[in-house]
Every structure is written in C-alpha cells, then in structure tokens.
C-alpha cells in the first residue's frame, strides 16, 4: 500500500473539508513532469541488492520478482539510484 492517484479532485467549496482533516495518502497529481532524465534498469545486470530502493527519496523503486521496478509517475529523475548502483544496472537517459 502507498498513497495513490485519485480520480476525484476536490474543487468546489462544498468538497473542501470544513476542518483541516482529510483522507491520508490522497494524491491528485503526478511528479513525472519534473523529470529531465529517466532511470532505466538493465534487468540482466540487476541482482536485486535493493540499495537503490533504500536510497530513493521519493520511494518510487519497488521490489519486483527479485529485482526492481520504477514508478515513472512519481520519479523526479534525481539520479541517486544510478549513482548508488555499483553494478551499473541503472542508467539515466534523456527524456524526449
């Protein structure tokens, strides 16, 4: 479980809560547009050591089948994962 994108975006006055209390983990926008470079994973080189998973400030790297998968909706392309990977399994590629 993690906060996820919702379809409903509170906009009108009646949809905005009267008190400063609202559902936790309520996301309405992605962060993908922040990215100039995207990390790509070479699955053949990845051994699933999870160093990148641990070091990601945005938590967008998840475990998958003993390796890793990146959530590109929320990755900002900071490049910490590529720098952390000693096996060179992550490379930063320019976004087109």
């Amino acid at each position: 479980m993690k906060p996820y994108l919702r379809e409903k975006v509170p906009k009108t006055l009646s949809e905005i809560p009267e008190y400063t209390v609202f559902e936790a983990g309520y996301l309405v926008s992605k962060n993908a547009g922040w990215r100039n470079v995207r990390p790509t994973v070479d699955k053949a080189k990845c051994v699933g050591c999870l160093k990148c998973y641990l070091c990601c400030p945005d938590g967008v790297i998840a475990k998958q089948d003993g390796k890793i998968a990146i959530d590109y909706d929320f990755c900002k392309g900071c490049g910490i994962c590529a720098k952390t990977c000693k096996l060179g399994a992550i490379e930063m590629e320019a976004e087109i």
Partner: peptide, 8 residues
C-alpha cells in the same frame, strides 16, 4: 491540499 502525501 488535496495532494496529501502521508498515508499514516
């Protein structure tokens, strides 16, 4: 608001 990023 309405982007609330803590799930706890």
């Amino acid at each position: 608001f309405p982007q609330l990023c803590f799930s706890n």
